[in-house]
Nucleic acid binder design. Sequence first.
DNA 1: TTGTAGGCGTTATCAG
DNA 2: CTGATAACGCCTACAA
Lengths: 338, 338
Amino acid sequence: MTDVAREANVSAITVSRALRQPDIVSPEVRVRVKDAVDRLGYVPDLAARALASARTDIIGVVIPSVTNNVFADVLRGAYSAAEASPFRLQLGNTRYSPIEEERLLRVFLSQKPAGLLVTGLDQAAASLGLLKTADCPIVQIMEYGDSPVDMLIGLSHREAARTATRHLIESGYRRVAFLGARMDPRTQRRLEGFRDAARVAGLLDERLIVTTPQASTVGLGGDLLGALLAQAPDADAVFCNNDDLALGALFECQRRRISVPHEFGICGFNDLEPAAAAFPSITSVRTFREAMGRQAVEMLLTRISGAPVVNAKIDIGFELIRRESTRRFEPAVTQESL
Amino acid sequence: MTDVAREANVSAITVSRALRQPDIVSPEVRVRVKDAVDRLGYVPDLAARALASARTDIIGVVIPSVTNNVFADVLRGAYSAAEASPFRLQLGNTRYSPIEEERLLRVFLSQKPAGLLVTGLDQAAASLGLLKTADCPIVQIMEYGDSPVDMLIGLSHREAARTATRHLIESGYRRVAFLGARMDPRTQRRLEGFRDAARVAGLLDERLIVTTPQASTVGLGGDLLGALLAQAPDADAVFCNNDDLALGALFECQRRRISVPHEFGICGFNDLEPAAAAFPSITSVRTFREAMGRQAVEMLLTRISGAPVVNAKIDIGFELIRRESTRRFEPAVTQESL
DNA sequence: TTGTAGGCGTTATCAG
DNA sequence: CTGATAACGCCTACAA
């Protein structure tokens, strides 16, 4: 930077200012500095900047999985919001482990991040403590609930699951089952929502609930459907904890010559792209993942800039997308009509 | 750190050493320092460390997409290799834009990264220049080719596509088509491989090639199949540039009552999880994405540690996974037999 | 609008 | 094995 300053005939601090806040230096100097920077190929040292200013341009992002499409979408939104800013995202992958989450938070915090984006509301006590003492804005995403550490944007998975289950029941299915994998906090809440709706309709039967701690895959959806039909052969619909399971359940139905939706209804969760493209297309609960990621980062940026965030607790909602896989009575284009 | 030093009755530099290279301080001092660190809740300042040591613990990762499952797998491998080390990954998403790639490289380079992991061999001249002058180890991933900037791990997409296409031809299909989306460099090479194999068999017909610059989705696979059948109704098989397109093509066949594999063969690429779970299961070319990510980071770590990398140019290969969707003549369990 | 002085927390260097 | 000293490159605070 000293070299640039010499080349541009100004002091180092002026170079610094010309780079960070071009408005406050004279246009003439601004140009001279810019030229010198280009000529010398100067690149600012971010470590020095961070040390001197006691802050960084890093926003830490803590998610449980990088391969899960749901979080990939969240990331896309987060990156798109961050790209327009001078802030960079740093990813941490907890692989659904509270211990790993705590370790990651420590790593992030030791960098004095400008902000933090963390997944869910169910941090372990130690992690919660770290978050509460962190002196940067924090957004929790994915879930909507009562006591966020700081800011919050998400949805009620319980309510969403209630809506989906109710839809299956209203579509005429009577032995409505639940398939769940991983059983992370959000899955647990969806199971609660399922139970709520089934109980209200007088259709709750614990034998219709099949879960596993394994990670969701399409193949697993088929396996779980198999397990369900083994223990409850009269099941006539499933609410799947996510679209991967739903797709797997659909394939398994095809394999077993079970007609969807006439003999068997299938509802997924998240409304990933393949749900709409499948045959028959799969009913699902749409969640706004990219928007969540984007808005979460925007909330952070607003707070970082010093402005207050008007709505720091956002219920982003969900939307039931009705498709062929739950049209029990309508003459939909399905296996049946092949 | 000064506080820790006082608490432990040693000098600051000893604390520094006790933390970074515990072996070179006396066991007694090591314990005293550790206690003091715990007692005071000391957390090292990474910015200061980076400034003083002129290096960082950051490995920059440049990929074209975060939502593409292929790169999600690469990331998983990269993270798993990095987690065992003191190095952290920093992600950059080019969204398939060379300009964005160059910008990202500049950002990374200004942090003096410990290493760089970049996707592909087709960087723009400006980016290539940046990479060549970077003073850190670099691994290019995904493709195998001749002149890597530094290290390389990948596969020949052209050869993989040749193998897949040949498989379709050998399975008895005669009007074998190609569906491609995005048309990034790797897709282009797969198209070349397709042309190679079709030409050798005397079956090349440009009307059997349907491509689009749009990003791949399952739904798009159905659209492309529709476009193909409109312009070449006698097509009897497709090699799809990836499994999303293949899945979409399969659904579209079901929708149109085209029997897979008897009337129509489908082969995908990458062997993502749903390919195996689909009904009929989809033949695909397996690529070793997680291994690529993991090994790439391991190569970087080796070089960072100062050791030489014995094999700095790795062809990780591929594997054709034959499944039901290309069993033209065998009595497979398919729509047909429903 | 620009410049001066000083220090951010750590590590390299060299000495003991 | 341990310690004193001097940077690392930039920014904050204050002054002109």
